[in-house]
Deep mutational scan, measured.
Amino acid sequence: PAHPYDRLKTTSTDPVSDIDVTRREAYLSSEEFKEKFGMTKEAFYKLPKWKQNKFKMAVQLF
Score class of each variant (00 low, 15 high):
1 P>T: 12
1 P>E: 13
1 P>M: 14
1 P>G: 13
1 P>C: 15
2 A>K: 15
2 A>G: 10
2 A>S: 15
3 H>T: 06
3 H>A: 03
4 P>M: 06
4 P>F: 04
4 P>S: 10
4 P>V: 04
5 Y>V: 05
6 D>G: 00
6 D>W: 08
7 R>D: 08
7 R>S: 10
7 R>I: 09
7 R>L: 09
8 L>W: 05
8 L>F: 05
8 L>E: 07
8 L>T: 04
10 T>I: 13
11 T>A: 04
11 T>P: 05
11 T>N: 13
11 T>W: 03
12 S>N: 03
12 S>L: 03
12 S>T: 08
13 T>H: 10
13 T>M: 11
14 D>C: 13
14 D>V: 03
14 D>R: 04
14 D>T: 06
14 D>Y: 11
15 P>M: 04
15 P>F: 02
15 P>N: 05
16 V>G: 04
16 V>L: 09
16 V>M: 05
16 V>K: 03
17 S>Y: 15
18 D>V: 06
18 D>A: 08
18 D>P: 07
18 D>Q: 05
19 I>L: 04
19 I>D: 02
19 I>Q: 05
19 I>K: 02
19 I>G: 04
20 D>Y: 01
20 D>A: 07
20 D>F: 03
20 D>C: 12
20 D>I: 05
21 V>M: 08
21 V>D: 11
22 T>K: 09
22 T>A: 09
22 T>F: 03
23 R>K: 12
23 R>H: 09
24 R>F: 08
25 E>S: 05
25 E>G: 03
26 A>M: 14
26 A>H: 05
26 A>L: 09
26 A>P: 03
26 A>T: 09
27 Y>M: 03
27 Y>K: 05
28 L>W: 03
29 S>C: 08
29 S>F: 05
29 S>Q: 01
29 S>G: 07
30 S>W: 11
30 S>H: 13
31 E>T: 13
31 E>N: 08
31 E>M: 08
32 E>T: 04
32 E>G: 03
32 E>L: 02
33 F>Y: 02
33 F>S: 01
33 F>E: 01
33 F>G: 01
33 F>K: 00
34 K>F: 15
34 K>H: 14
34 K>T: 12
34 K>W: 15
35 E>H: 10
35 E>G: 05
35 E>C: 12
36 K>D: 01
36 K>V: 15
36 K>Q: 10
36 K>P: 01
37 F>D: 00
37 F>A: 00
38 G>T: 03
38 G>W: 07
38 G>V: 05
38 G>F: 07
39 M>T: 01
39 M>A: 00
39 M>C: 09
40 T>V: 07
40 T>W: 04
41 K>E: 08
41 K>L: 09
42 E>N: 15
42 E>K: 11
42 E>L: 10
42 E>W: 10
42 E>R: 10
43 A>N: 11
43 A>V: 12
43 A>W: 05
43 A>P: 00
43 A>E: 15
44 F>S: 00
45 Y>R: 07
45 Y>S: 06
45 Y>E: 11
45 Y>Q: 03
46 K>V: 10
46 K>S: 13
46 K>F: 10
47 L>M: 11
47 L>W: 02
47 L>I: 01
48 P>F: 11
48 P>G: 00
48 P>Q: 01
48 P>A: 06
49 K>T: 11
49 K>H: 09
50 W>E: 07
50 W>I: 02
50 W>D: 09
50 W>F: 06
50 W>G: 02
50 W>H: 05
50 W>Q: 02
51 K>I: 14
51 K>Y: 10
51 K>F: 12
51 K>P: 00
52 Q>R: 06
52 Q>I: 01
52 Q>Y: 01
52 Q>C: 02
52 Q>E: 00
52 Q>T: 00
52 Q>H: 00
52 Q>V: 01
53 N>T: 12
53 N>L: 12
54 K>M: 14
54 K>W: 14
54 K>R: 13
55 F>A: 13
55 F>G: 00
55 F>Q: 04
55 F>R: 08
56 K>D: 01
56 K>L: 08
56 K>V: 04
56 K>T: 01
57 M>Y: 09
57 M>P: 00
57 M>I: 13
57 M>W: 13
58 A>K: 13
58 A>Q: 13
59 V>E: 05
59 V>H: 09
59 V>A: 09
59 V>L: 15
59 V>D: 04
60 Q>I: 09
60 Q>H: 14
61 L>Q: 04
62 F>E: 15
62 F>G: 15
